[in-house]
């Protein structure tokens, strides 16, 4: 495994216990220049996770708590008239940072949501006719409450798709829990964490992901997977081309993290659940309703060519 990668993973897993798989996937998304949607109940360490990532990667970090009365300006920033200088001064919003933790995105109105989601897609913000680039790398970790709660505005499918991955944090296992209870406060520990990579190194890592080789045989496999979702009645609709690209990008990043220069079917299989979880919906017709896990169903049905 790549040395800086190994370093990053080691550091993060010291703080976030027993979540190696999630950490790896999060790093995969980050190196693939994608964003993450964390779906989980409060208190499982989402904020700590985001903070740790920021610290280890040497990035700055902002947290936005979404509420129903939030306005786009609360995220993007606002221009205020400076009496002394006799001109408008832009006060950047929390979105201008490397890692943004958007907490409870589905509490906000669609207007505020789309401000964030547009910024995510474009990598820039246009305010008062002026386009401002967001910092690079730019990485959003959004959390979402279960959508059946009162007072939520569920994200539409089109916007869900902008997240590369959807992860479940999950409760720690009993060993990790015990260690957590015994050990020091995590936030306190966080202070001792040193950045594992420099800013430039991180950008370089991201660039290297793009050079990972995907052979025709592998592309066949990816295409088979996509076609399967489009042709089987279990799926409400098939994966979009954007989803296919996301899957391949994530798989490349995953292969890179594992120190390979080529993508294997296993890489696709490893990232596929996280990449497609929020993109696949069971169709109400037919017998799809009794399929618990659509991504697993997809993987089990499509053969590796």
């Amino acid at each position: 495994m790549n040395e800086p990668i190994e370093n990053i993973l080691k550091q993060v897993s010291q703080i976030i216990l027993g979540k190696d798989e999630i950490i790896k996937l999060a790093l995969t998304a980050l190196l693939a220049k994608g964003h993450i949607l964390l779906e989980d109940v409060p208190g499982v360490g989402k904020t700590t996770f985001a903070l740790t990532l920021a610290k280890v990667l040497g990035l700055d970090y902002q947290r936005v708590q979404f509420t129903s009365d939030m306005l786009p300006a609360d995220i993007l920033g606002v221009s205020i008239f400076n009496q002394n200088a006799h001109k408008f001064e832009f006060h950047p919003g929390p979105i201008f940072s490397n890692i943004v933790l958007a907490d409870e995105v589905n509490r906000a109105t669609p207007k505020a949501q789309s401000a964030l989601l547009e910024a995510m897609e474009e990598g820039q913000v246009t305010l008062d006719g002026e386009t401002r680039a967001l910092p690079d790398p730019f990485f959003v970790i959004a959390t979402q409450n279960p959508t059946d709660q009162i007072g939520t505005f569920p994200l539409p499918e089109s916007q869900l798709e902008r997240f590369l991955m959807c992860l479940y944090m999950g409760y720690p296992d009993s060993n990790a829990e015990r260690a957590l209870l015994k050990g020091e406060d995590r936030r306190h520990l966080l202070k001792s964490v040193e950045p594992a990579v420099t800013h430039d190194e991180l950008l370089q890592l991201q660039a290297q992901v793009g050079q990972i080789h995907a052979s025709d045989a592998l592309l066949d496999y990816v295409q088979n997977l996509i076609h399967f979702t489009r042709n089987q009645p279990e799926f409400l609709f098939g994966l979009s081309p954007r989803s296919g690209l996301a899957l391949l990008r994530a798989a490349k990043s995953w292969a890179f993290i594992h120190g390979r220069k080529e993508v294997l079917p296993e890489d696709v299989q490893s990232v596929l659940p996280a990449v497609t979880r929020h993109r696949l919906f069971a169709s109400s017709a037919g017998h799809a309703s009794n399929i618990e896990n659509l991504p697993q169903f997809l993987l089990s049905e499509v053969a590796v060519p």
């Binding site: 294997l264 079917p265 296993e266 299989q269 089990s300 049905e301 499509v302 053969a303 590796v304």
Partner: peptide, 8 residues
């Protein structure tokens, strides 16, 4: 297995 990659 049909859906098994080489390394697995």
């Amino acid at each position: 297995q049909a859906n098994e990659g080489p390394s697995d």
